[in-house]
Every structure is written in structure tokens, then in C-alpha cells.
């Protein structure tokens, strides 16, 4: 959660959050139509550079958050590699059937997950949620009742975590024992989920009442404490993305690493 970790703000923090969100969403949709793993490979290089040097966070945070990416790479690619369809068989053993096509398709999927993982971490590490929601109200015309609900819910999270810890202590004191296996897991989830949900629902209800008591819904128009407009940083970000895509594209044609261009 970027609210509780200290960092040095960089130019990425000053990009308009809605613009950042839309740009990344557009990228996501666009990437669904990229079927060349070489392209993705070069995209990763640019994205990593930005992730490593652009967020202003400590190496520890950057490193810790990057670890799951390797697992993601494996889990997104292995199924396709072992069980995908293809013509040119490399290896066959029982159910496992690795073909050239499925292998590169699997690699492609893994690479794609990593690009997304990097970009999402980049977003999460350089965007203050409060600014994001102010910006979505101002630029994307999100209704205030949604935006402020999100902000209020974020404020409640640390309280929920604290309650979770208290619950754990209380169950220890009261000598709660769980059954083994699936049943125990079900009992455990229920034991924690019910009090946490009940408390949070009640608190959310009270906060909503308190917000209304402060005349939240009385006026349709409102002013804003934070104004989030566009700056030249947004242009910079746009140009970066553009250059990044072009270079990745050119490289993928010039310096071919994977001997396939179309994995679909």
C-alpha cells in the first residue's frame, strides 16, 4: 500500500492519475492483439528500467514486490507449454506434450504477465489513491459518492487489519481449535470472516451516516481541495510510452530472439 511506505516523489508521481490509468488500460487492451513474443521481450526491458529507476521507492520495496513476478511467469506459461496444442512435437510423456508452438505460446503468455505486473506495480507505487479518486471525479466525471466511498474504505483498511490481529489473539485466549483439512479451513475462514465483515459493515454504515451529517449529498456541485490538471509530465509520459513501443517494435524485427513471430 503506497500510503504507508515512505518514498521520494518522482516525475511519475506527478502524472495525472486518470491519464495514467487510461493509458495503461489502453495498453492492456492493445497488448491482447500482440502475438509476437520478441515484441514483449523488448517491452520488458523498457518497463523494467522505469520500474527500477522511476518509482522513487527503496531497493528493498522494489525487490520484494518483484519476487512474485517470477512465480507469475511460471504459472502463466507452464500450462500452455505442457498441454497446449501444436504440430511440431519436442517432447511427449504421458499427458505432457510439449510442442514448438505451445512452448513459444507459453513463453509469450509468461512475458505478457510480466509486462503487466511491472506496469501495475509502477502504477501502484507512484499513485496516491486520494489523488486518483479526485482525478477520476474531475477528469472522468465519476460521481462523488463513488469516489468518496472508495477513499473512506481505504481509510478503514488499517482498522480492519488491527481488528484481524485482535481476533487472532482472542481466539488464542479462548482456546479455539480447528478441525483438519478442508473442513478446518472452512471453519477458520468463517470464524474470521463473520466478525470482520460484521464489524466493517457496521462501521461503514456509521461512516456513511457521518458523511451525510456533514451535508455530503445536499449539494450537487462541489469544490475540490485538490485540483488535478494536466502538466507537461503527462506529455512526457505519453512520449515515453510511444518511443518505448516503437523501439520495442523495431528491435523485435531487427534482433530476433525467439524464432516465431506469431504464436496464436
Amino acid at each position: 500500500m503506497s500510503i504507508s511506505i515512505s518514498y521520494q516523489p518522482t516525475w511519475l508521481h506527478r502524472i495525472n492519475p486518470s491519464f495514467k490509468l487510461l493509458a495503461l488500460t489502453a495498453l492492456f487492451i492493445g497488448m491482447l492483439f500482440i502475438h509476437n513474443p520478441n515484441f514483449l521481450l523488448y517491452m520488458i526491458i523498457g518497463a523494467s528500467a522505469l520500474y527500477l529507476f522511476g518509482t522513487g521507492h527503496s531497493w528493498k520495496v522494489i525487490g520484494l514486490l518483484a519476487i512474485p513476478l517470477t512465480i507469475i511467469f511460471l504459472s502463466s506459461s507452464t500450462t500452455m507449454i505442457f498441454f497446449g496444442e501444436g504440430e511440431h512435437t519436442w517432447f511427449k510423456f504421458g499427458l505432457i506434450h510439449i510442442t514448438e508452438e505451445s512452448f513459444y505460446r507459453g513463453i509469450h503468455l509468461g512475458l505478457r504477465s510480466i509486462v503487466f505486473g511491472l506496469l501495475s506495480l509502477l502504477f501502484a507505487l507512484t499513485t496516491r489513491p486520494v489523488y486518483l479518486f479526485y482525478s477520476t471525479m474531475q477528469q472522468l466525471k465519476l460521481k462523488p459518492k463513488y469516489a468518496y466511498s472508495f477513499m473512506a474504505a481505504i481509510r478503514m483498511l488499517p482498522i480492519i487489519v488491527e481488528e484481524f490481529q485482535t481476533l487472532r489473539q482472542a481466539f488464542k485466549v479462548r482456546g479455539v481449535q480447528y478441525s483438519k483439512g478442508i473442513k478446518g479451513m472452512y471453519e477458520k475462514i468463517k470464524l474470521y470472516a463473520i466478525p470482520l465483515l460484521a464489524q466493517s459493515i457496521r462501521r461503514a454504515h456509521r461512516i456513511a451516516v457521518a458523511m451525510e451529517a456533514k451535508q455530503f449529498s445536499k449539494n450537487n456541485k462541489r469544490t475540490f481541495y485538490y485540483h488535478l490538471g494536466y502538466t507537461n509530465k503527462d506529455l512526457l509520459f505519453f512520449l515515453f510510452l510511444l518511443v518505448w513501443l516503437i523501439i520495442s517494435y523495431v528491435c523485435s524485427n531487427q534482433f530476433v530472439v525467439f524464432p516465431v513471430e506469431y504464436v496464436r
Partner: peptide
């Protein structure tokens, strides 16, 4: 996504 979920956008 806001808490840095690995699956991202």
C-alpha cells in the same frame, strides 16, 4: 490493484 496486486490492470 491499488495494493500492488501482481495481476495488475
Amino acid at each position: 490493484f491499488l495494493f500492488g496486486g501482481q495481476w495488475g490492470i
